[in-house]
Write a protein that binds this DNA or RNA. Structure first.
Lengths: 189, 189
DNA sequence: AGCTTGAGGCTATCGACATTAGCCAGTCCA
DNA sequence: TGGACTGGCTAATGTCGATAGCCTCAAGCT
């Protein structure tokens, strides 16, 4: 029997791709194995458990998301950075709903956990979206949480098909981004 | 062997209570059966499947949530109604995280599905929170989605322990509610 | 009261999964 | 070339949702 030449990274990639395709809830070790042309138990030579696999997918997702936002906000500030960052995050979740769900399902296990670092990068990306708004330092934490709340809330609702009327979700998003932007700008005085 | 005297409603109640206690993800038919002093297969005389149970819990949760918000906004309008409704929703999710998660996991199966009616009641409760803000009719749908996004986003992040710093989540919530309230008021001109 | 009947328990069993144990061949390095 | 480790595999276990089929309790009729 020829070797498949798997590595933890390859298994993680397959898992991430499958999560996006079939939905995070349907992700199973058997499916990943099938995708890789291997029997289920073989995966355990590269990944210690399904939870471990999800954890790895979460790390990858957090890094990718952070990159997306960073790229989008590159060289911008204030309203422009915020708008671009928000669009980038929404697009990422839309294109990779399974990965994003995995990111929410995992939680970091300590300061050395790579997930901790990855989530820190995401947080930094969000913080970067607020650069240029002159926000009172005492309110920064709240503004950051507002950002998370809004972006996460919209993304998950949309991913769960939560907007029934589905007519103009696009419009709603830009309206929402504009709403938050105006609010953030009005904080400055 | 004495009869346990179960009904679909009793099974649903037990499931809802357990979901809140052990977390929606840990909810299992075996756990529900144990709680009711019965063997697992017996549950299937009252509920057709685990999905059916979740669906029933979702209906109950939606109705309870709608009631909570209705009670809180009773006789109020504008900022007061919004603030009270937002607090009520947050409290409900905090006290019944499992039920709320079940509500998000289920989706209505048609116009006759009781879940459709229950979700409609929730939607109406949210809409009532906006009464008193003079919002351009063309923007009402967006404002409603803003509300859902913010309340759902905050509730799920908090339930998932998403706010790491956890210092002053309370403060963040009132700040966020105030932020949205000011934005909504400023729409009127 | 006894009989009938159906609803609501139960045991046994199946199938899908995650996971572990233990075997065996491929590959790589001395 | 010959180990020895690595990464596949088969087999087996345990958990969980779900189904089949049995058996008894209890309500209602005669």
């Amino acid at each position: 029997m020829p070797r498949a030449g798997l590595t933890p990274a390859i298994v993680t990639d397959a898992g991430a791709a499958l999560a996006d395709e079939v939905g995070f809830a349907q992700l199973s070790m058997g499916l990943v194995a099938e995708r890789l042309g291997v029997k289920t138990p073989s995966l355990y030579k590269h990944v210690t458990s399904q939870a471990d696999l999800v954890h790895r997918i979460a790390v990858q997702a957090a890094n990718e998301l952070a990159d997306s936002i960073r790229d989008a906000t590159q060289g911008r500030a204030g309203s422009e950075a915020f708008t671009a960052g928000a669009q980038a995050m929404r697009r990422y979740v839309k294109e990779h709903p399974g990965r994003y769900a995995a990111g929410n399902a995992a939680s970091p296990a300590g300061p050395d956990d790579p997930l901790t670092a990855a989530l820190g990068r995401v947080l930094a990306s969000w913080a970067a979206m607020l650069h240029g708004y002159r926000i009172d330092p005492g309110q920064e934490i709240h503004a950051l949480r507002l950002l998370r709340t809004v972006l996460h809330g919209f993304a998950t609702l949309e991913a769960a098909n939560g907007f029934r009327i589905d007519a103009d979700v696009e419009d709603s998003f830009t309206w929402l981004v504009d709403f938050v932007d105006r609010g953030l700008r009005s904080l400055d005085r």
